[in-house]
Write a protein that binds this DNA or RNA. Structure first.
Lengths: 252, 252
DNA sequence: CAATAACGTGCAGAAACGTGCAAAAACAAG
DNA sequence: CTTGTTTTTGCACGTTTCTGCACGTTATTG
């Protein structure tokens, strides 16, 4: 057995059994405990496991966190997110906005999806850090703490150099007359910049946002490909959007 | 059963059953009561449980919450983080690397600190989103999932346009001969770029990293201002660093 | 109150630890 | 192919951690 294989075995054993006992493994592999201890020490130094007396434990309780994280979300936002995730094609480059629905979208992406996600949301980036196949590009800038997204001229400039197949836009208001709105002017400009760089723009619009309007327009409704909402969205609001020529997905 | 596992079992039993009876647990695990009592004493000393005659009860909710926060706050990495946080002066611009110690540093910054933090770690950015006064600049780039940091040419270029008063550098190895090392070459280059843009560089080096060495050198030890470590750092490792002319803070 | 159970401390033996070293195996260059 | 270099492995050994024992002290119970 090669030394590298042995390290893989250690990590696999850790994952499967939740622990490694140095003495047992040495006997099993017919090696000295010294060798196993050396392996454990090195793997611990690289952050792959937690070295304890007599063996090793998993690196962190992050396994439990991973499980919680991958629990399928319920509620309106998760519904919207699923509708959105189904629109992402393998091989595409898509941009994801910030916010809780956007975060749900990051979670809802299929585990085998091979695509590139560009985002100015560190929260979305952290969510996608555990995705096995999606490539993630972070757009930097000044952190707008209210929404936990990068904003300002730095972000705006960086977005201007990106082109994406689709942009998943988060807003706070979806109104037939007022259009798509949000509460901060700088954030509105960032979102607008994304729509200008995207072939298609889908609004993440759970029902509570329909009929609402905030202070700053992002883009008019005519500028987007569709509004993605949920089954419980208000029928009148949906009807009004459709009457205005807007494509609404996620509700009959 | 490993000793560390047994402590986990005790805490799990406490959560599930609301109590631990020392005599019963000793019988169940075929160990002496002395051993169980020692475990309970140690866990109580760390605030994880309430020691009572005959066994243990859960720490009270308020204490448990405080302890959970304090437990994070009392580990080696939190110690290092506190030493680091104390070095940040109001009005400064500092860069924070990625990793768990870096995240602790973000948490350890004083609540009234007025400074600017630049980081290529979305995790650090998310932590600082709740800080009332610190300005945060995110450096974008391709997400290196293993360490959850932005990397690649985009990040490297962005860092080249930033100057900071101090860079708090995370590594996996601190060795008198091998220098400061990490496990990925691209990440090593990003870290190096930061050291070149920083007036001072402080290494976040909890004790387990001292004496260890990973594959890729970031910078030699002579290139940094100081290594910040914790009280439990190995004395020999610390002595060797000091003998090599390295300033080591956080341990006598 | 006395008897019993549980406690914490100090101690010794066993197990595990990490370091330095040398030999063997693997690798790379000529 | 040979030779020099690097990596891997086990050994020896001093250090550290873990565990049970003994025992005096403290708490609980009838």
């Amino acid at each position: 057995m090669l030394a590298a294989q042995r390290k893989d075995l250690i990590l696999t054993t850790l994952r499967d059994q939740g622990r490694v006992v140095a003495k047992d493994l040495a006997a099993e592999l017919d090696l000295s405990e010294d060798t196993i201890r050396r392996d454990l020490r090195e793997l611990a130094a690289e952050g792959h496991l937690h070295r304890v007396h007599g063996g090793a434990l998993p690196a962190s309780p992050a396994v439990a966190d991973f499980t919680a994280r991958t629990t399928i979300g319920t509620g309106a936002k998760a519904e919207v997110a699923r509708t959105a995730a189904a629109l992402v094609r393998p091989g595409q480059t898509v941009a994801i906005d910030g916010g809780t629905t956007a975060r749900e979208l990051a979670r809802a992406l299929p585990a085998d999806l091979r695509a590139t996600v560009v985002t100015h949301s560190p929260t979305v980036a952290v969510e996608l850090a555990v995705h096995p196949t999606v490539e993630v590009i972070i757009v930097g800038g000044r952190l707008f703490k209210h929404s936990v997204v990068a904003a300002g001229a730095l972000a705006h400039e960086a977005i201007g150099r990106v082109s994406v197949d689709a942009f998943f836009l988060g807003v706070t208001g979806i109104h037939p007359a007022a259009g798509l709105t949000t509460g901060d002017a700088d954030e509105a400009a960032i979102k607008r910049a994304w729509t200008e760089r995207a072939a298609e723009t889908y609004v993440l619009g759970s029902g509570e946002k329909i009929g609402a309007a905030s202070a700053f327009e992002v883009v008019p409704l005519a500028a987007v490909t569709a509004v993605l909402t949920d089954a419980a969205a208000p029928a009148r609001g949906v009807a009004e959007l459709r009457a205005a020529g807007v494509r609404v997905l996620g509700v009959s």
